[in-house]
Design a protein around this nucleic acid. Structure first.
Lengths: 362, 362
DNA sequence: GGGACATTTGTTCACGTAAACACGACCGTC
DNA sequence: GACGGTCGTGTTTACGTGAACAAATGTCCC
């Protein structure tokens, strides 16, 4: 608490970079040379102190540190990056931040990266068109990053014929293509399987599915796993309904499903659609879970506050983010060029939207 | 479409940086000098082409471009930043990405920044303690950014006595303190006023309030405006309930409010809490809007799919983000050191959770 | 006391880019 | 045909840092 206002925004530090001498840019940041001059040492010594290198007397170190503090020295990261050939920055390229999963993953990535001393540069792609993606990668090419984490469906990525600069590593979250990149993903198949089994165990004859958009790989995998789980159990596989991940689309699909006779359990591909589904069922006078059981995917924070609280498959996005950073940094450090998919386990969270089917349908 | 695989990840471009000569780092990226050598010109000419400067023959330009393409040249942003003294990067410092508002704002910031040719560096602060914030600002100090956008309650910021490097501009979103920083915020007072008036116009005697956490400035302002609007209309001001923005806290508060006699209209400080409130009312057998009207704040995408669809105050986070970038870039360009608060208007979205009070309470 | 060696500090230079300046070729004008 | 002015291009240099090397100062042992 030795400085006054929050952001000092000082026009010129207490001791400005040595008068008019080197002050070309008026508000120029202090450089190592300035510190060196003030402390009466060479700039190399300042560098050593700045990097915590040995071979500096305690006495000298103290003087240098004092000088640094006095003129408010901060290492120039551009010069540092230029010299070292690394930026200590990871680029994250993703589609709009509207999906909870992406955001949570990003959050974890940022936290992990910060912990490792890396910064995050964000590259959102507004519209998932090839042109947009291509543009983002082009920008990325000249961006100051050592590595890239892509949170995206790979099929879009494949369409993009962009070459990254050599030595820029890539990890892809939430996708297939583990054979070509290092991929981190949640165990969607396992989660789906647990979801379906939970409903069948409750006594439902079969489980309907409210799928995500066709072009989404995650949606495909959930739908595929749902089908497989039903077939494995020897149950009938109803025609899946389809939404676009939004609650609104879940509502529309729900209005249809509400009219389906024999539909006593629905597995929605995400929680938002499950929310819309709940609303549709409510409006159609079908009680949940009395008449119909509803099960979601994601476990968004609000899921426990739906009416009724939603049983859903919890995804550990934080862990995905952490592993992405680990993977990409391992590559940066040249430790292992491992490709392949890492699966983060999911967990079924049972709340109150699922129960036994109505007596007649048992 | 002239390149092969998605990420070429070429170990060494088609024409590596001129043999073993300058190849200290094996996978070194091609530099201007390499391009110059290949094209048979000086590196300065390459620079001119690279920056689209005039004074280069069409003929020469073509040759240089061809050479660039051949060896896969990308400008080195570190060197560029060092030379130019600017990074073309904006740092965004915010608390956890769990609030919809923050995320939407961030999204818009990223989009606007990209549009202006700026990159975004993300600095999430996990826990809103002073130490954490201080740490983030320290990191920020040596980060490669020209400007900073802070999405945070200023009171936390004030506690932090960190000085940013000179010339680093600051814009604060969602806060007060317009006298010290450039602040962009949504018109929370106007939105609240519209919300309260809407409920009073429907015939409610008064409006209860489910407030956000005490330490939140946004919560304070909404609560204050709610109180003012009621007093202005000469209505009784009930004791506000308090949550922590989460749906769960809204549920707990809702259980209490459901028992309050005379509580026919509740204005929740955000949509998540409104969601929990809806659930509590539903569980207590109070119909919405038949017995109680509920009104939220934010207009999150799911709000229209609540049961019933939520009437709420829409915040234009995208506009907030855009103005943040505008403001900060204006400062960077030295156009105006304007302080003061910019207000982005809100809009009342009437759905089905509000209606006239029950006959007895009219 | 002299030589081998460790410890601390200083000097030089290169990283890749781009501003400033220098140079030569070509143009039209008188 | 000599002169000033463009125009296109090359040369030099600086940005701030840190590796490599050099130098200065001890320190110890024989």
């Amino acid at each position: 608490m030795d400085e006054t206002a929050g952001f000092a925004q000082r026009d010129e530090g207490p001791a400005a970079p040595s008068g008019a001498a080197g002050a070309r840019h008026p508000g120029r940041r202090a450089s190592m040379a300035d510190v060196a001059r003030l402390a009466g040492v060479s700039s190399q010594t300042v560098s050593r102190v700045s990097n915590g290198f040995p071979g500096v007397t305690e006495e000298t170190r103290r003087q240098v540190l004092a000088a640094m503090k006095q003129i408010g020295y901060r290492p120039n990261s551009a010069a540092r990056a230029l010299k070292r050939g690394e930026f200590r920055t990871i680029g994250v390229i993703l589609f709009s931040l509207s999906s909870t999963g992406n955001v949570r993953t990003l959050e974890a990535i940022a936290a992990s990266a910060a912990h490792e001393g890396y910064a995050i540069t964000l590259l959102p792609v507004a519209v998932p068109t090839q042109d947009e993606v291509r543009g983002a990668f082009t920008r990325l090419g000249e961006l100051a990053v050592d590595a890239v984490i892509v949170i995206m469906e790979v099929h879009l990525l494949d369409a993009v014929t962009v070459s990254l600069p050599p030595n820029v590593q890539v990890v892809v979250a939430d996708s297939d293509a583990g054979d070509r990149y290092t991929v981190v993903d949640t165990d969607q198949v396992g989660g789906t399987r647990a979801a379906v089994r939970h409903l069948l165990d409750l006594g439902h004859r079969t489980v309907w599915h409210l799928a995500g958009p066709e072009e989404s790989f995650a949606a495909q995998r959930r739908a595929g796993a749902w089908r497989a789980a039903l077939e494995e159990a020897g149950r009938e596989v109803p025609e899946p309904a389809r939404g676009d991940w939004s609650a609104e689309s879940g509502y529309r699909a729900g209005l249809r499903l509400a009219g389906e006779p024999g539909c006593t359990a629905v597995f929605a591909a995400n929680d938002q659609m499950a929310l819309g589904l709940l609303r549709a069922l409510h409006e159609r006078g079908r009680s949940v879970p009395g008449d119909v059981s509803v099960l979601g995917f994601d476990d968004i924070p609000e899921a426990g506050s739906f009416v009724p609280p939603l049983t859903t498959v919890h995804q550990d996005f934080a862990e995905v983010g952490r592993r992405c950073v680990q993977g990409v940094l391992r590559q940066v450090r040249g430790e292992s060029p491992e490709r392949g998919t890492t699966l983060v386990p999911t967990r079924l969270v049972v709340r109150r939207s699922t129960g036994a089917p109505p007596a007649g349908d048992r």
